[in-house]
Design a protein around this nucleic acid. Structure first.
Lengths: 198, 198
DNA sequence: TGGGAAGTTGACCAGTTGGTTAATTTGAAA
DNA sequence: TTTCAAATTAACCAACTGGTCAACTTCCCA
C-alpha cells in the first residue's frame, strides 16, 4: 500500500482559503504549497494542474456546505424560517471569517465565478452546477411557503431567483466594503422581496 | 510642446475591454500593449503601473457611463420608468457586447470588485466610490416614486440597496451562464421588489 | 522482517510577469 | 527652419509562473 499522507487535504484547504481570501489569479501554486507545507513535486503528485486542484477544492467545499444546508432547509422547519435561518447562517459564517482574516470574504463561488467564468470553462461549469443546486433550496422553501399560504406568488422559481441574486449581491457588497453590517439587511430584504410582513 | 499621441486612450480602451472580457488577473501588461498597439516602454511613459492604468480606465469608463445615466434618470422622466429604462439599457448594452465578444460580460465594476477588493485597496476604493454613486440614481428615483405615491415604502434607501444588489446578482448570473435571457427578469423582478403591479 | 507502493524532495525548465532604460524619432510652436 | 519637449522603441531585468523529473524516503501489509 505504501505510506499515507494528509498533504492532499492540506492542499485543498489551502486552495479554498487562498482563493476565498484573495482571488484565483492571486493564488499561485507556490503560495498554495507554502500554505499547505507541501513541496511542489508533491503538489503535482496529487493534482494534475492548478485548475484540477481548484475543481477538487470547490467540489469539496460545496459537499461540506451542503451538509449544513440540508439541515437548515429541512422540510421539518417552517419554509420561511429556513430562508431566514440560511441568511443568519451566512452572516455567522462571515463573522467567523472576519475574525480569522480581518476581512469580510463574501461568497467564494460568486467571486470566483465573476473572475473566471469567461476564462476557464471547466471552473465555470462547476460553479454553475453548484449555484444551480443552491437555488433549489430557496425554490422548494418558497414553494412550500406558497402552499402553506405564508406568501403569495404565482412563480416560486422566479421569486427564488430574485432572492438568490439579491443575496449574492449583498454578499459581494459586504466583501467590497469589508462591512459585516451590510448583511444585517438580509432578513428584512428577503421579507420585502417575498412580501412577508414583519 | 512635442509630438502628440493617441496611445494613452488606446491603452485605456484596451484595458477596459480586456478586464471586462476576462479579469484583472488574466490581463497582463503585454496583452494590453498588444491590443493597444503600443510598446511597453510607451505604456510606462504614460502610466506608472498597471494599477494606475486600471484606476484611470475605470474612472474613464464610469465618466462615460454617467452621461447615459444622467439622461435615463432625468427628473423629467417618471421615477419608476427611470429604473425600468435603466434595466432595459443594461440589457441592450449586454446584447451589444455579446455581438462583439460572443459572451455576456456582466458588470465590470462588480466582477472586478469581487476579484480585487481583498487584494488591491486602491482599486477597491475606486470601485466603492463608483458603486456608491450609482446607487444614488436608484435612491432618488425610489424616493420620487414614493413621494408621487406610485410605490409604498418607509425606507427608500433600503429599497434602493435591494434593487441594486439584485441587479448586480442578475448581471453576474448572466455572465456566469453566458445567457442574455437571464436579464429578461430584470423589470419583473424590480416590480416585485418595489411592490408595483404589472 | 523485508518488499514495494505511495509519498517526498529539491533541482530544474521555458515562458511570462510587471517594470526599467537609454537611445532615437517625431512634430508642434517659436 | 530650427528647436526641444514629448513620444517611441527595443533590449533588458529579476522575480515569478505553472509544471517536470529522477532520486530518495517512508511505512503499510504480507
Amino acid at each position: 500500500m505504501g505510506r499515507t499522507s494528509t498533504a492532499k487535504d492540506r492542499l485543498i484547504d489551502a486552495m479554498i482559503e487562498l482563493i476565498w481570501a484573495g482571488s484565483y489569479g492571486s493564488t499561485s501554486v507556490d503560495h498554495i504549497c507554502d500554505r499547505a507545507g507541501v513541496k511542489k513535486g508533491s503538489f503535482y503528485h496529487f493534482f494534475e494542474s492548478k485548475t484540477e486542484l481548484a475543481l477538487t477544492a470547490i467540489e469539496h467545499g460545496w459537499t461540506e456546505h451542503r451538509k449544513e444546508l440540508d439541515q437548515i432547509f429541512s422540510p421539518v422547519v417552517p419554509p420561511l424560517e429556513r430562508i431566514m435561518h440560511c441568511f443568519r447562517n451566512f452572516r455567522q459564517e462571515q463573522e467567523d471569517l472576519f475574525k480569522k482574516h480581518g476581512r469580510v470574504l463574501g461568497c467564494p463561488i460568486h467571486s470566483l465565478g465573476a473572475e473566471v467564468s469567461t476564462v476557464d470553462e471547466r471552473l465555470r461549469d462547476k460553479l454553475q452546477e453548484i449555484l444551480s443546486q443552491f437555488i433549489r433550496y430557496y425554490e422548494s422553501a418558497i414553494r412550500d411557503a406558497q402552499a402553506q399560504g405564508s406568501i403569495v406568488t404565482h412563480d416560486a422559481m422566479a421569486l427564488a431567483r430574485i432572492v438568490f441574486a439579491y443575496s449574492e449581491g449583498l454578499l459581494l457588497h459586504a466583501r467590497m466594503w469589508n462591512d459585516l453590517g451590510r448583511l444585517d439587511e438580509f432578513e428584512s430584504g428577503a421579507k420585502i422581496i417575498l412580501g412577508v410582513k414583519g
